[in-house]
């Protein structure tokens, strides 16, 4: 190979553009990746559980502030917001993540490591001081820093699958 142009244009530009198109642009073109619709269980007046589809709304200013704190303090290095359909995660953390739940997330906070639990479904299950009690109870005795408020609004359906809570001990962080 002697030509700089074939390297720069062919390998450097051409193949990457192809990949970005196939792996980045094409998935975006699929309407299901841009949907705002999520599924939610509601209890009717007659007492039965009904599944409804509804559109998520943008974050309120207060929720947006909570999200900013969550990003700033790097909570997302240890907590995921991403329930997978494998490894018994639906039983452990709650219903599966849906594309619509991420519709307003810029940047996304799926995360890649769980040093603490997944947080997608905790908002509707526990009160605000749950994080504090849960991490104080861990035998590593090193609670992660207390967020100023619950970190992410939970707009998914409320969790009715039995996910077990961490043991509760004396609160050390407040």
């Amino acid at each position: 190979m002697k030509s700089i142009a074939s390297l720069a244009v062919g390998a450097g530009f051409g193949l990457v553009t192809l990949a970005m198109f196939v792996q980045g642009v094409l998935p975006m073109l699929a309407p299901e990746s841009r949907t705002r619709a999520v599924t939610r269980a509601v209890r009717t007046d007659l007492g039965d559980v009904k599944w409804v589809r509804y559109d998520t709304a943008d974050y309120t200013p207060l929720e947006a502030r909570g999200r900013a704190v969550y990003i700033r303090e790097g909570c997302w290095y240890c907590h995921s917001q991403y329930v997978r359909p494998v490894a018994g995660e639906e039983v452990r953390w709650g219903p599966l993540s849906e594309a619509g739940e991420y519709a307003w997330d810029q940047p996304h906070l799926l995360s890649t490591r769980r040093i603490g639990p997944d947080l997608t479904r905790v908002g509707l299950k526990f009160s605000d001081d749950w994080h504090c009690r849960a991490s104080a109870g861990s035998s590593t005795r090193r609670p992660s820093r207390r967020p100023r408020r619950a970190s992410r609004p939970r707009r998914g359906r409320p969790c009715d699958a039995g996910s077990r809570c961490a043991p509760i001990a004396r609160c050390r962080c407040s």
Partner: peptide, 17 residues
Amino acid sequence: VGPGHLPGINNAAWHGL
């Protein structure tokens, strides 16, 4: 441009890339 301009789950796809 990525983190602040790509909405939703596609933000994650581009981030992976």
